[in-house]
């Protein structure tokens, strides 16, 4: 990891050896720019980059590239997310060039949730390429200056390439190999699925450390504070590949009426403390879902402020 690949703030923070702290923001269900700006506002200065989701859970929202552009204008660095569900390789490459031209420097490559979950279950799913191939595609465009078909690109996009890893989906034994495959394909950084089962995560990160993966790629641990017992139950039962231990649900219940949210934040803070010390973890990705205004408080209490300027 000698010279900078993209020059993004996130890349610089990680490269300088700081413990990274990234946030997340879902674009509005409409063209409501004011609403988007309201969601971006509390994230300013609190995180190194903000993931801008791409039709997350297959629900139509303002496009991630447009919302990322607005975020740039607001002075916050976006981590542009792209899913393979909604675009073929032509649209994918066109959008990659477009976002780079608009000043975006980080991109997270995802398969995307199947549209069966979303608000247009009757749509056709594209999946021309998968997330692994998307990672390799962005790398090829950046490092070789070539399109997928081998043609030269006139000004290649220089993006910091991100990918996701879910240590909690099955088969568990294969998960670290899939991580390795993503890193080989070209991932510069990884953001994991929300972690609640710390034991299982530790086992996963130990495997990654043993395989030397953390030396080739920055791994950011995913944290989503539980807002309520209901949210924990929903995550436990309804979200495939999510592992919410019974002990956490008990702990949230035990907090008493109206206090589960605070208990959820406390649990998240304890996790962040552990991650700071954990070998192989280069930072935290905080996904405060529809809780953006809580990010300053969480960042403050987690002791990750002020964010480094590099």
């Amino acid at each position: 990891m000698s010279e900078l690949k993209s020059g993004s703030n996130l890349e610089k923070v990680l490269k300088a050896g700081h413990f990274a702290f990234t946030g997340e923001c879902g674009p509005p269900k409409g063209a409501n720019v004011e609403h988007l700006k309201e969601k971006i506002e509390p994230l300013k200065g609190m995180v190194d980059a903000v993931n801008v989701t791409d039709n997350q859970t297959a629900v139509v929202r303002m496009s991630s590239w447009a919302a990322s552009t607005i975020m740039c204008q607001e002075g916050v660095e976006p981590n542009f997310q792209m899913v393979c569900r909604d675009r073929n390789r032509l649209a994918i490459q066109a959008d990659i060039l477009g976002v780079y031209a608009m000043g975006i420097r980080n991109m997270l490559c995802l398969s995307g949730d199947h549209q069966r979950f979303g608000n247009h279950p009757e749509s056709k799913n594209v999946y021309d390429i998968d997330s692994m191939q998307l990672i390799a595609l962005v790398k090829k465009m950046r490092d070789e200056g070539k399109f997928l078909n081998g043609e030269e690109i006139d000004v290649p996009p220089r993006l910091f390439i991100g990918a996701a890893a879910n240590p909690f989906s099955d088969p568990f034994e294969f998960r670290v190999y899939r991580l390795a495959k993503k890193i080989d394909a070209g991932a510069d950084f990884i953001q994991t699925q929300c972690i609640y089962n710390m034991d299982r995560f530790k086992e996963f990160i130990k495997q990654a450390v043993d395989m030397g993966l953390y030396e080739k790629c920055y791994i950011l641990a995913g944290v989503t504070p539980m807002k309520s017992v209901g949210m924990a139950l929903y995550m436990a039962k309804q979200v495939p590949g999510m592992d919410v231990p019974e002990s956490l649900i008990k702990r949230l219940r035990g907090a008493g009426k109206g206090k589960a949210g605070e208990e959820g934040i406390r649990f998240a803070l304890e996790q962040i403390e552990e991650f700071k010390e954990m070998e192989g973890v280069a930072g935290v990705h905080l996904m405060a879902i529809e809780w953006e205004h809580k990010v300053p408080e969480i960042a403050e209490r987690a002791g990750v402020l002020p964010r480094p300027t590099v």
Binding site: R85, H114, D130, S131, M132, Q133, A165, S169, D170, F174
Partner: peptide
């Protein structure tokens, strides 16, 4: 595979079942 992935499995695979159902 519901997403026709050639480099699977995706993060939604749980207990041998697909994330869609």
């Amino acid at each position: 595979c519901s997403k026709s992935l050639l480099n699977g499995p995706c993060g939604g695979s749980a207990d041998g079942k697909c994330e869609i159902s």
